[in-house]
Design a protein around this nucleic acid. Sequence first.
DNA 1: ATGATAATCGAACGCCTGTTCTGTGTCAAG
DNA 2: CTTGACACAGAACAGGCGTTCGATTATCAT
Lengths: 228, 228
Amino acid sequence: MMMVRKSKGLGERHQRILDFLAEYQRENKYPPSIREIGEKTGITSTSVVNYYLDQLEKMGKIERDRRISRGVRVAGPIQSVDTLRVPILGPIAAGIPLPELQPGVSFVTDNEAHAVEIARSLLPAKEKGDNLFALEVKGDSMIDAMINDGDIVVMRPASEARNGEMVAVWLPRDNEATLKYFFKEKDRYRLQPANPTMKPIFIKKTDPLEIKGKVVMVIRKMDRPLAA
Amino acid sequence: MMMVRKSKGLGERHQRILDFLAEYQRENKYPPSIREIGEKTGITSTSVVNYYLDQLEKMGKIERDRRISRGVRVAGPIQSVDTLRVPILGPIAAGIPLPELQPGVSFVTDNEAHAVEIARSLLPAKEKGDNLFALEVKGDSMIDAMINDGDIVVMRPASEARNGEMVAVWLPRDNEATLKYFFKEKDRYRLQPANPTMKPIFIKKTDPLEIKGKVVMVIRKMDRPLAA
DNA sequence: ATGATAATCGAACGCCTGTTCTGTGTCAAG
DNA sequence: CTTGACACAGAACAGGCGTTCGATTATCAT
């Protein structure tokens, strides 16, 4: 018998039990029994499973309903399978540098206030969402993109784009960030505003232009009235 | 003992069992036992509960895992508690009449294609959402509201508004629908475009103006590139 | 009126499942 | 070296729970 001494917080066995509880619940829509927990986590004795469940309950990680079969649930809100939590990495405005990002790198934020939940059904079915990020618009500098102060722009990191895709671009010459539809032309790039009454920007292919991301979605919440 | 003869589809006891399954699952995160189902639905015998569960299983309404305690679940996708399904009632453009709606009336749509799922966390906590509806923007006639062709505008029915709220308004004189910030002035209404570079519309208080809804949210999916 | 079927029921059974008890090994502190 | 706490284990127990059986009643079709 090998023991791992108690340390502050979760031990390996605690974590495996929690992971199994979440996975089993997702798949079956009901929790596992104590014996099933033991089988999956390599704990051969129901009293030891009970021992760990009691500890997880004391830590506030789970809730137990006593003398009820399968009467255990993970405590508090857990990530819904129906929504995707996208971290809000900061503001976006013309004069603010865009965040440095790498495609394929995941973001982790445990600050509740800096994330937006998106219903997965609004995203393409194949979208895993693990590299999406969001920026919140500050000021009126994005109105040529039909994007208001306060809007949340959801993006995926990118350093290249196809014609017609809306991108977040940093123009080092102008010290300016902008959101525009991107087109490659013969010897220049055309950055086309979303507002059809506005004129595009042309950038010579020899001039610096840094694509930082592709816009996937824009969300506008009307949670405060316009000042008179 | 009173019997109700079998008819096509669900009987009263079937429906009560289904309702209880959904309610119990939401509250407890695990399903009820057969005895608990019986207690709640007034069925005194576990074999009768089993009889009805077998029928619900054959109808495809539930799934059962045999010989497992609480091994029953409602079949198929059920409305997530984390998202809200808002029916898309039709298009919106300047020349299209807005739908006639009554505040407090719920909409029901079983057409999957005509709804948008919104993460509940994007809505105010007190928002029940049972009277929200959405319209999909067709054409460029809403650009003064900073709203694009293809955007989805989520609204709550309203016939009045407070200053600074964005409303969907039908102007009978002009046969025109518009989305603008609403202000009452001394003897006229001001409809202020979201685009700060555009001028407002003024409507005399004696002229007809029909507020149909207040805008709660706008969603823009960038799921197709802009044509060159 | 009769036979078949559906609906309903209580009881019993057996398995599933949570809880409790007793014991052992390890580790840290005194 | 002793002691107490923690981690772990197996066994037993008791209760929770699903399934089955035999019976009764109501309804329906002939």
